[in-house]
Simulated assay, not measured.
Amino acid sequence: MFERSKISKQTIAVRRGFTLIELLVVIAIIAILAAILFPVFSAAREKARQATCLSNLRNVALAQAQYAQDYDELLNRIRGRWVPQGVKWAFGAQDMLAPYIRNDAIWKCPSDFIPRDDCDDTYGFPISYSFTNFQSSWDDGPSGTATFGLHAYSTNTADWEARSKSLPEIEAPGDTIAIFELWTTASYSEGFAYWRWDVRNIADPRWPDAPNYFVFTWCSGKPNQAQMTIGAHSLQTNFTFVDGHAKAMPRRQTMPWPWDAASIQARAAAGQSNRNLLHWKVRGNYAPSYK
């Protein structure tokens, strides 16, 4: 008998590379995914920075509450009378609240990108937060300036005794903003927590929100090199209120615009809201002086 021969067949694998078109398709898909995901990751990182910033503000608000308890319920000033303290040239809110704050790093919002400059080699630590300004003689802005905030600003013998508002004077502490984000070259510990004289700047739609900013001259030898903006996180600014709570909101929601006597009275006549979260004597829907 003859046995049928067994012939084994060996399969030879042929390895083929990607074609140029296939590579281009893969690259295009990766680019599309990156374009979709990178903004998501960036927004997530900014949200985390905003949360840290809000936590910092809560700590500053807590320090302010402790200060008020120790000083007959008066809020701290933005700046006190000048007292030479080595390299410091001002006595600011950060100095007044220092006994109640253990970590100076909380004064800096991690999203604050504005460079600081004291016009010399040092500036101390940056300050990202500011306090609403109060001056009784300019209160509601009859001369074009509104200082209806909470915190006094004094720099010379004429206003050494300028006082901030006291807690009993504030009729709606849960609706009255005390501290907000202001990022500027001029705000640092060797000076003071810089401020806005006209409180309306905080809500002014003509003012920039971060990351936009305007320039001004701070150091005489560096014209138009200083920067300032209202701190913002995707158009959400962090605020603290007199009762201690903190929240993020669009700054234009803090008060109706424009804020002048004619516009306020026109809104009141039309039954529209004049609710102003930046005004120390606001109660309910209208500022009492313009009911």
Rank of each mutant, 00 (worst) to 15 (best):
A93Q: 10
A13K: 13
N59Y: 00
D118E: 04
A61T: 02
T184P: 03
P173F: 05
K281D: 15
N276F: 03
A105S: 15
A226T: 10
W280V: 06
F91D: 06
A90G: 00
Q85N: 14
K6M: 10
A13P: 15
H151A: 13
L277D: 00
R200Y: 09
W89D: 15
T155N: 14
T184C: 03
N201Q: 11
T185E: 00
A68W: 09
P258G: 06
S289W: 06
S166C: 03
R200E: 09
E169K: 10
L57V: 07
D139P: 00
A65H: 07
L150T: 14
S5C: 05
G231P: 01
A248C: 04
G191S: 12
N56F: 05
H151F: 15
G17T: 13
R102W: 00
A68E: 05
P256N: 05
G80M: 08
I12T: 13
I12H: 10
K291Q: 13
T176K: 12
G174F: 07
G86H: 09
I30L: 15
D117Y: 00
A31Y: 01
P288A: 07
Y286W: 09
W89L: 11
E169D: 11
R81S: 13
W218C: 00
Y71E: 07
H245C: 05
K47C: 05
W195F: 15
R4N: 08
A210M: 08
T19K: 06
K88D: 01
N103C: 02
D118R: 06
E181K: 04
R4V: 13
P256A: 04
D95N: 10
G221P: 01
